[in-house]
Amino acid sequence: MYEGVVQNLIDELGLLPGVGPKSAQRIAFHLLSADPADVKRLAHALLEVKEKVRFCRVCGNVAAEEECRICRDQRRDPHVICVVEESKDVVAIEKTREFRGRYHVLGGAISPIDGVGPDDLRVRELMARLADGEVTELILATDPNLEGEATATYLARLVKPMGLKVTRLASGLPVGGDLEYADEVTLGRAFEGRRLLDV
Protein backbone atom coordinates (compact mmCIF):
# COMPACT_ATOMS: atom_id res chain seq x y z
CA MET A 1 0.00 0.00 0.00
CA TYR A 2 1.15 3.50 -0.83
CA GLU A 3 0.50 6.85 0.84
CA GLY A 4 -3.16 7.92 0.71
CA VAL A 5 -3.37 9.97 -2.50
CA VAL A 6 -1.20 7.65 -4.56
CA GLN A 7 -3.19 4.62 -3.47
CA ASN A 8 -6.43 6.47 -4.26
CA LEU A 9 -5.21 7.06 -7.79
CA ILE A 10 -4.17 3.41 -8.20
CA ASP A 11 -7.54 2.24 -6.91
CA GLU A 12 -9.42 4.54 -9.27
CA LEU A 13 -7.35 3.50 -12.27
CA GLY A 14 -7.82 -0.14 -11.34
CA LEU A 15 -11.57 0.24 -11.80
CA LEU A 16 -11.12 0.96 -15.52
CA PRO A 17 -11.84 -1.88 -17.94
CA GLY A 18 -8.77 -3.87 -18.94
CA VAL A 19 -6.60 -2.33 -16.21
CA GLY A 20 -5.41 -4.67 -13.50
CA PRO A 21 -3.60 -3.72 -10.27
CA LYS A 22 -0.14 -3.86 -11.88
CA SER A 23 -1.12 -1.70 -14.84
CA ALA A 24 -2.88 0.73 -12.51
CA GLN A 25 0.31 1.07 -10.50
CA ARG A 26 2.38 1.63 -13.62
CA ILE A 27 0.03 4.30 -14.95
CA ALA A 28 -0.06 6.01 -11.55
CA PHE A 29 3.73 6.26 -11.37
CA HIS A 30 3.91 7.40 -14.95
CA LEU A 31 1.53 10.24 -14.08
CA LEU A 32 3.56 11.11 -10.97
CA SER A 33 6.70 11.60 -13.01
CA ALA A 34 4.95 13.26 -15.97
CA ASP A 35 4.99 16.95 -16.79
CA PRO A 36 2.26 18.75 -14.76
CA ALA A 37 0.89 20.36 -17.94
CA ASP A 38 0.38 16.96 -19.54
CA VAL A 39 -1.47 15.67 -16.50
CA LYS A 40 -3.65 18.80 -16.43
CA ARG A 41 -4.57 18.24 -20.06
CA LEU A 42 -5.56 14.64 -19.29
CA ALA A 43 -7.63 15.70 -16.27
CA HIS A 44 -9.29 18.38 -18.35
CA ALA A 45 -10.10 15.92 -21.13
CA LEU A 46 -11.64 13.56 -18.58
CA LEU A 47 -13.84 16.25 -17.10
CA GLU A 48 -14.75 17.67 -20.47
CA VAL A 49 -15.90 14.35 -21.81
CA LYS A 50 -18.37 13.98 -18.95
CA GLU A 51 -19.57 17.57 -19.23
CA LYS A 52 -19.84 18.02 -22.96
CA VAL A 53 -20.55 14.66 -24.50
CA ARG A 54 -24.15 13.78 -24.73
CA PHE A 55 -26.10 11.01 -26.31
CA CYS A 56 -27.83 11.67 -29.60
CA ARG A 57 -31.52 12.38 -29.13
CA VAL A 58 -32.35 10.22 -32.16
CA CYS A 59 -30.02 7.25 -32.23
CA GLY A 60 -28.32 7.17 -28.83
CA ASN A 61 -24.82 7.45 -30.25
CA VAL A 62 -22.32 9.68 -28.44
CA ALA A 63 -22.67 13.23 -29.73
CA ALA A 64 -21.26 16.68 -29.06
CA GLU A 65 -24.61 18.28 -29.74
CA GLU A 66 -28.28 17.45 -29.52
CA GLU A 67 -27.98 15.11 -32.48
CA CYS A 68 -24.95 13.17 -33.60
CA ARG A 69 -22.99 13.82 -36.76
CA ILE A 70 -24.56 10.89 -38.59
CA CYS A 71 -28.14 11.79 -37.75
CA ARG A 72 -27.54 15.37 -38.89
CA ASP A 73 -26.04 14.24 -42.19
CA GLN A 74 -28.77 14.66 -44.82
CA ARG A 75 -26.92 12.44 -47.28
CA ARG A 76 -27.41 9.35 -45.13
CA ASP A 77 -30.16 6.99 -46.23
CA PRO A 78 -33.13 7.42 -43.86
CA HIS A 79 -34.75 4.17 -45.02
CA VAL A 80 -32.23 1.83 -43.43
CA ILE A 81 -31.40 1.58 -39.71
CA CYS A 82 -28.55 -0.50 -38.38
CA VAL A 83 -29.05 -1.56 -34.75
CA VAL A 84 -25.90 -1.95 -32.65
CA GLU A 85 -25.19 -2.50 -28.96
CA GLU A 86 -22.65 0.26 -28.28
CA SER A 87 -21.34 3.48 -29.76
CA LYS A 88 -18.03 1.80 -30.46
CA ASP A 89 -19.82 -0.57 -32.80
CA VAL A 90 -20.90 2.46 -34.84
CA VAL A 91 -17.26 3.44 -35.22
CA ALA A 92 -16.35 -0.09 -36.30
CA ILE A 93 -19.04 -0.16 -38.97
CA GLU A 94 -18.28 3.40 -40.13
CA LYS A 95 -14.70 2.34 -40.81
CA THR A 96 -15.93 -0.13 -43.42
CA ARG A 97 -17.57 2.73 -45.41
CA GLU A 98 -20.03 0.10 -46.62
CA PHE A 99 -23.06 1.39 -44.83
CA ARG A 100 -24.77 4.67 -45.75
CA GLY A 101 -27.89 4.37 -43.61
CA ARG A 102 -28.55 5.47 -40.02
CA TYR A 103 -27.82 3.82 -36.72
CA HIS A 104 -29.60 3.00 -33.53
CA VAL A 105 -27.52 2.36 -30.40
CA LEU A 106 -29.28 0.13 -27.88
CA GLY A 107 -26.84 0.66 -25.04
CA GLY A 108 -26.25 -3.04 -24.41
CA ALA A 109 -27.88 -6.40 -24.92
CA ILE A 110 -30.61 -8.32 -23.14
CA SER A 111 -29.04 -10.21 -20.24
CA PRO A 112 -31.28 -11.28 -17.34
CA ILE A 113 -28.24 -12.25 -15.26
CA ASP A 114 -27.15 -8.61 -15.28
CA GLY A 115 -30.72 -7.49 -14.84
CA VAL A 116 -30.87 -5.98 -18.32
CA GLY A 117 -34.22 -6.35 -20.07
CA PRO A 118 -35.68 -4.61 -23.14
CA ASP A 119 -36.89 -1.72 -20.95
CA ASP A 120 -33.31 -0.96 -19.99
CA LEU A 121 -32.28 -0.66 -23.62
CA ARG A 122 -33.32 1.99 -26.13
CA VAL A 123 -35.96 -0.29 -27.63
CA ARG A 124 -38.89 2.06 -27.12
CA GLU A 125 -36.99 4.80 -28.94
CA LEU A 126 -36.33 2.41 -31.81
CA MET A 127 -40.01 1.54 -32.09
CA ALA A 128 -40.84 5.25 -32.17
CA ARG A 129 -38.43 5.75 -35.05
CA LEU A 130 -40.02 2.91 -36.99
CA ALA A 131 -43.59 4.10 -36.40
CA ASP A 132 -43.85 6.58 -39.29
CA GLY A 133 -43.08 3.95 -41.92
CA GLU A 134 -40.17 5.76 -43.52
CA VAL A 135 -37.73 3.02 -42.52
CA THR A 136 -37.94 -0.02 -44.80
CA GLU A 137 -35.01 -2.11 -43.61
CA LEU A 138 -33.68 -2.91 -40.16
CA ILE A 139 -30.20 -4.41 -39.94
CA LEU A 140 -29.53 -6.21 -36.66
CA ALA A 141 -25.83 -5.88 -35.92
CA THR A 142 -25.70 -6.97 -32.28
CA ASP A 143 -22.72 -9.06 -31.15
CA PRO A 144 -22.61 -12.67 -32.35
CA ASN A 145 -22.72 -14.08 -28.80
CA LEU A 146 -25.65 -15.56 -26.91
CA GLU A 147 -26.89 -12.23 -25.51
CA GLY A 148 -26.49 -10.45 -28.85
CA GLU A 149 -28.33 -13.22 -30.67
CA ALA A 150 -31.12 -13.14 -28.09
CA THR A 151 -31.45 -9.37 -28.49
CA ALA A 152 -31.61 -9.75 -32.27
CA THR A 153 -34.27 -12.46 -32.00
CA TYR A 154 -36.28 -10.29 -29.63
CA LEU A 155 -36.19 -7.27 -31.92
CA ALA A 156 -36.99 -9.34 -35.00
CA ARG A 157 -40.10 -10.72 -33.27
CA LEU A 158 -41.09 -7.30 -32.03
CA VAL A 159 -41.01 -5.58 -35.43
CA LYS A 160 -42.41 -8.51 -37.39
CA PRO A 161 -45.99 -7.11 -37.49
CA MET A 162 -44.63 -3.91 -39.09
CA GLY A 163 -43.73 -5.84 -42.21
CA LEU A 164 -40.35 -4.28 -42.82
CA LYS A 165 -37.29 -6.10 -44.05
CA VAL A 166 -35.22 -7.38 -41.13
CA THR A 167 -31.70 -8.66 -41.75
CA ARG A 168 -28.97 -10.00 -39.50
CA LEU A 169 -25.27 -9.55 -40.16
CA ALA A 170 -23.72 -12.73 -41.51
CA SER A 171 -21.38 -14.64 -39.27
CA GLY A 172 -18.79 -16.89 -40.73
CA LEU A 173 -15.32 -17.12 -42.06
CA PRO A 174 -12.75 -14.38 -41.71
CA VAL A 175 -11.62 -12.85 -44.98
CA GLY A 176 -8.14 -13.83 -46.12
CA GLY A 177 -8.02 -16.82 -43.79
CA ASP A 178 -7.67 -20.51 -44.37
CA LEU A 179 -10.70 -22.74 -44.08
CA GLU A 180 -8.74 -25.34 -42.12
CA TYR A 181 -7.99 -22.86 -39.33
CA ALA A 182 -11.60 -21.91 -38.70
CA ASP A 183 -13.04 -23.34 -35.50
CA GLU A 184 -15.95 -25.73 -35.88
CA VAL A 185 -18.61 -23.40 -34.51
CA THR A 186 -17.68 -20.63 -36.93
CA LEU A 187 -17.43 -23.05 -39.82
CA GLY A 188 -20.80 -24.54 -38.87
CA ARG A 189 -22.35 -21.07 -38.88
CA ALA A 190 -20.80 -20.32 -42.22
CA PHE A 191 -22.48 -23.44 -43.61
CA GLU A 192 -25.85 -22.40 -42.20
CA GLY A 193 -25.51 -18.95 -43.72
CA ARG A 194 -24.19 -20.01 -47.13
CA ARG A 195 -25.63 -18.21 -50.13
CA LEU A 196 -26.24 -18.75 -53.81
CA LEU A 197 -23.33 -17.78 -55.98
CA ASP A 198 -24.48 -15.62 -58.87
CA VAL A 199 -22.45 -16.19 -62.02
Binding site: G117, P118, A150, Y154, R157, L158
Partner: peptide, 13 residues
Amino acid sequence: GDVLSTLEVWDAH
Protein backbone atom coordinates in the same frame (compact mmCIF):
# COMPACT_ATOMS: atom_id res chain seq x y z
CA GLY B 1 -44.82 -8.21 -19.37
CA ASP B 2 -41.24 -7.42 -20.21
CA VAL B 3 -40.25 -10.69 -18.64
CA LEU B 4 -42.71 -12.79 -20.59
CA SER B 5 -41.90 -11.17 -23.90
CA THR B 6 -38.21 -12.02 -23.59
CA LEU B 7 -38.87 -15.48 -22.17
CA GLU B 8 -39.84 -16.69 -25.64
CA VAL B 9 -36.53 -15.47 -26.97
CA TRP B 10 -34.60 -17.44 -24.36
CA ASP B 11 -36.83 -20.44 -25.02
CA ALA B 12 -35.71 -20.36 -28.64
CA HIS B 13 -32.03 -20.29 -27.72
